[in-house]
Design a protein around this nucleic acid. Structure first.
Lengths: 341, 341
DNA sequence: ATAAATTTTTTACGCGCGTAAAATTTAGCT
DNA sequence: AGCTAAATTTTACGCGCGTAAAAAATTTAT
């Protein structure tokens, strides 16, 4: 690790007494050389400080070891968490992940894809913006680069899709709410950013009807990715105008719920399942912050680990040649019972 | 933009009728060629789909256009937000930023620096882990790569330091709390992750003494970067054992405050400045989430824009040869009054 | 021990672009 | 128009490594 610096592979070949092409093979895949050779190289790496020049490496290689990870909004801890998880898995598998965020902006997402193209990645893990995505650009990109879509599906694009089973999410938590109190109203954005929201609304309606209740959907205005503020403002409006027909509110996602909780606080409405509480609020996503709201938020959580593992493994297999037909994998979530509902 | 693909610069030279060396100059810096030539090249770029191969580009260039951005924990929205801000500034200035997170782990921070080395970046914007950083590794890195330290200072390392004026932060908010109610106790981690926390404690003590009050510091156990949980558990302990000598609590940072608010909720302690409230809680940082706590958190906010602008500009100047002596810039924060205090 | 299979070495070329130096063209100015 | 300064073209080499092919060495099997 420490030791005198070596300028290039040729010099390292001389110093270590191993031919350059063999070293090249080693750095490309350590298991591709005989075990005895490998240990000789590793011993030399201890003595000398040498790392291959990544630019020269990637220049002629048909396939780099780069993997791009793209999320719609890195400042959302949910995406930050899943990105971290994916990043670690890529490193563990010997790839070089690079993190990108579309920052909730269509044009930026397209730019990220452009940047990604020039990185010549072996593969890409992409969570699209959703409704705001430039679908043609996505399609063109997927045709060029092996891309696995996660979180938010966009038709049958890319290698496969891995995400959560939104229908199960909403059905499950709706069922819980119905069994433990008044049936819930559904609180959502009128023009949600991604298709998961539509699935959740539909699942809510279907679940309510199957339980013999009348679904009540409250859709509030608001554009963009500032969900908390949309939830807060929408919450104020809904509370003031008594749009909620029952004392239980299921939010389309946790960030909206967080905003609604703030609105409730600001209107002096007590939230929780206690006798002294006026309404119950539940979210969906298992957002990292949901534990720390007041009251702590009852929600149904993504299986972060399973989603990222499934996505990563599917991409690795595709990169390594194990092509399988397009498939959609949707993982179940887990109900997290807290004080808010 | 759209049009037939061109394989390399030579082919693009033929197609556009402009010599390859001139194109090379153009792609390195568009303003370095005559305006008429520039517009001819830009016209050709509209017709043909060509982007220089970044690997070939960076192979021989003494200085790449890469800039590394390193934060200690990307899943903390505060760092995510400042990283986003820096990223945009780099792009606007014609650089290629790459985002890294140390994920709160010393070994990972060292690994990130290793990875960064092989990227041969023109410069790096680095927010160190702080106490957990491997200072020798940081020093060695800074000696090799132009590095601007931000957020959390580590001796006189790198080009310069840009961050917030923690003394001003704490003095200002302590003053506010003293003027509007009982003087605050100070709530912090016993072994904080970064040096800013020490400055804040000291500034609190100094401020209290200068106002003629007795400082009361409550330090709670807890390791790592799960500040909310540390604040919640420590909050329970402090409330149960009546460690707070006044009804006002100034937290070392917002995430700790968020955890404390949850503890208060769980113990049925009403927080706010109303008559019916038992205690007041304030934070420090202007965390993106602080608006949505219940009650919304009174805090003193970093000047995100100014910090990132100052940091970015300082780095750009250094990269472009305008070397100036090491300097520490600490920017003032702005008090944000909300319901919690 | 000998042949066969595998691995390593030798040799050699090319990737796409940066960059230097000299020759040539173009623009700016009186 | 004529001159100078600046920009562009021509020519040519090199960066560090991937990779192919053939020769040599090593390991494994018989």
């Amino acid at each position: 690790m420490a030791g005198e610096k070596v300028r290039n592979m040729e010099e390292f070949a001389r110093m270590s007494g191993i031919s350059r092409p063999t070293l090249s093979k080693f750095f490309n895949d350590p298991t591709s050389v005989r075990a005895s050779t490998r240990s000789r190289i590793e011993a030399a790496l201890e003595q000398f400080d040498y790392r291959p020049n990544i630019y020269a490496m990637n220049q002629n290689r048909k396939l780099t070891k780069n993997i791009g990870i793209v999320v719609p909004l890195l400042s959302d801890p949910y995406f930050a968490e899943i990105a971290r998880n994916l990043e670690q898995r890529c490193i563990a598998a010997g790839y070089r992940p690079t993190l990108f965020s579309s920052h909730g902006d269509t044009a930026l997402e397209v730019e990220v894809l452009q940047t990604l193209r020039s990185l010549k990645p072996a593969g890409v893990l992409l969570a699209p913006l959703g409704r705001a995505s430039d679908n043609k650009a996505l399609e063109a990109f997927c045709a060029e680069v092996p891309t696995l879509i996660f979180d938010s599906s966009v038709e049958e694009i890319g290698l496969s899709f891995v995400g959560s089973d939104n229908v199960q999410f909403t059905t499950h938590i709706t069922d819980y709410l119905c069994r433990t109190g008044e049936p819930p109203c559904f609180f959502e954005m009128k023009t949600p950013a991604n298709p998961n929201a539509h699935r959740r609304r539909q699942a809510y309606i279907a679940a309510m009807e199957s339980f013999g209740h009348t679904p009540e959907v409250v859709s509030v205005e608001g554009e963009g990715w500032g969900f908390e503020e949309i939830g807060r403002l929408g919450g104020h409006e809904a509370l003031t105008n008594k749009w909620f027909s029952t004392n239980t509110i299921l939010c389309s996602n946790d960030r909206l719920a967080i905003g609604l909780l703030t609105a409730c606080y600001e209107q002096g409405v007590r939230v929780g399942r206690g006798q002294d509480c006026a309404i119950r609020v539940a979210g969906q996503d298992g957002h990292p912050h949901s534990r720390y709201t007041c009251p702590p938020l009852t929600t149904i959580s993504h299986n972060y680990d399973a989603v990222s593992q499934t996505a990563a493994i599917a991409l690795f297999l595709a990169i390594e040649g194990q092509l399988s037909p397009w498939k959609s994998t949707r993982l179940e979530g887990q109900l997290i019972l807290r004080d808010s509902a």
